[in-house]
Design a protein around this nucleic acid. Structure first.
Lengths: 270, 270
DNA sequence: CGTCGTGTTGAGCTTTTTCAAATAGTGTGG
DNA sequence: CCACACTATTTGAAAAAGCTCAACACGACG
């Protein structure tokens, strides 16, 4: 049974606390996260713990991928936040989704020759390179449980994309913001960040606006409404969901059902 | 070299012309479509041509999947249109995407125990069942070229999801509609439906509204604007894109780059 | 001929955006 | 510790985009 070392913290940390995690700390975190998604065999956990690395630090606002260019190598985010986005010609930006610690960046995804979206850090980040085995053409025949966990991760990605579409297309400003907050809480909770219904996130209202398809000003006013109605507390970069049930009702948030996503090789049992 | 038989037609057909295609006609169409996506070996094409079936006809407005329920078995759409959608509690509907002939329905997708979205036909449809081998846990070790084609299809799906998010979050009504029309044209063109820049689609303004996140009335007015400005001709269910370049510029439509998506097993060449 | 589904129109209303400016918070260097 | 620059949040007012409601038009079909 592997022993995990915590290496992730999305919150603020004093400058003098800053220290790059060791490769082992980073890979332990990644392994722990995927082991939670689906039960994984010891050898498969070891495969994640033995990611080749190296560990890479990137400052805030560094572009990891650029839309339309050949994608960089696959990696896992260990700490900090990033986002996937697209730009329109006149500068409009749409944030397609956030990348939080534990998430892969172009790990075992769909194989596009050119990146479909850009990826940029939104806070200082630590990533660990995943090596060619985790590229888009993975083939984990000897690692069924790892393959299963990665499939669950992909399924979650699809779930967030679908949720985003519904949010943008058919929800009001208040609902959108509520929904996004619940999604973020759910995801951070999954990876052991967050503290009950409180979590911290390096999100400016500008960033939120580009994620929920509103103007910054309107995000501001909508956030005020959430606070005024006692649904959330939200100061600095710390958000507390005060009324989870009510907020969930407003947003019609549907937490992903991952309980039964165990990998099952239904076909070609071989 | 297999001989393909055309079996798809999304357009109107006289009632007396209506005839269910044979299983072989259906599978030929599917095989032809995927062989166009990526070069496929003869045995892999044969695998699609030998889909177990049966062929299934479904009338307009039949729900194939229901969100939150265990998904039905995988199948390919052979003719007619369907859409994936989500419903909100008060009846709001968001259409996540359209399913056009050649597309798979829950074929080799992400393995969710419960359907993330509903799927409903929007015209009379013909589908062909794909059999368990094409379920979410596919394993095409012996069929690399087929696997590659299915990956391209998945990559395209992801591309449309991302496009939808950008469209909904950061584009105006005119841009959204223009963008959707170009996407639909591109996809129909891919599968050999459509006639130059003209195509036919069983889309009411209601359906379009739920796909681009607008009200029906506003879709109507926006469509009028597209016609008034000479960008498209749009009568009954036939749409002609009169100014492809201009429309593409307005919509910032980025056709997927599939030229180089050839399957390459980069990892574990074994 | 009447009905039903779909498309079209007008008017008033709500939501959201835009622009501009003021306020608050954070970090830096003196 | 203060002054300063810089970034992020907040506010107000007016404009724009989009929505709702209700009515009407049109064509397909029985």
């Amino acid at each position: 049974m592997p022993h995990f070392v915590s290496a992730a913290g999305a919150g603020r940390r004093r400058v003098n606390e800053r220290r790059a995690p060791s490769l082992r700390e980073a890979t332990n975190f990644v392994a722990q996260r995927y082991a939670r998604l689906a039960p994984m065999s010891a050898p498969d956990i070891a495969m994640l713990q033995d990611l080749p690395g190296p560990v890479e630090e990137a400052p805030k606002n560094r572009e990891i991928h650029v839309e339309g260019r050949p994608p960089a190598s696959p990696r896992f985010l260990v700490s900090g936040w990033a986002c996937r986005f697209r730009l329109l010609g006149d500068g409009r930006r749409m944030i397609l989704g956030f990348v939080v610690p534990g998430d892969g960046i172009r790990v075992c995804g769909t194989p596009h020759p050119l990146a479909l979206s850009s990826v940029s850090t939104i806070s200082d980040c630590v990533m660990v390179h995943a090596g060619a085995a985790f590229g888009p053409h993975q083939d984990f025949d000897a690692h069924l449980s790892l393959d299963g966990a990665l499939r669950v991760a992909r399924a979650l990605d699809e779930c967030w994309l679908i949720s985003a579409i519904t949010r943008l297309g058919r929800q009001t400003a208040l609902e959108r913001l509520a929904h996004l907050l619940l999604e973020l809480h759910w995801r951070l909770d999954q990876v052991g960040l967050g503290d009950g219904w409180r979590f911290s996130a390096p999100l400016t209202q500008d960033i939120l606006a580009d994620a929920v398809g509103l103007s910054t000003v309107h995000v501001n006013r909508t956030a005020q409404q959430l606070r005024r109605e006692g649904l959330v507390e939200w100061r600095h970069q710390t958000i507390t969901i005060l009324e989870p049930a009510l907020l969930g009702q407003i947003a019609e948030f549907r937490p992903p059902q991952i309980a039964d996503w165990r990998p099952q090789r239904l076909s070609n049992p071989k």
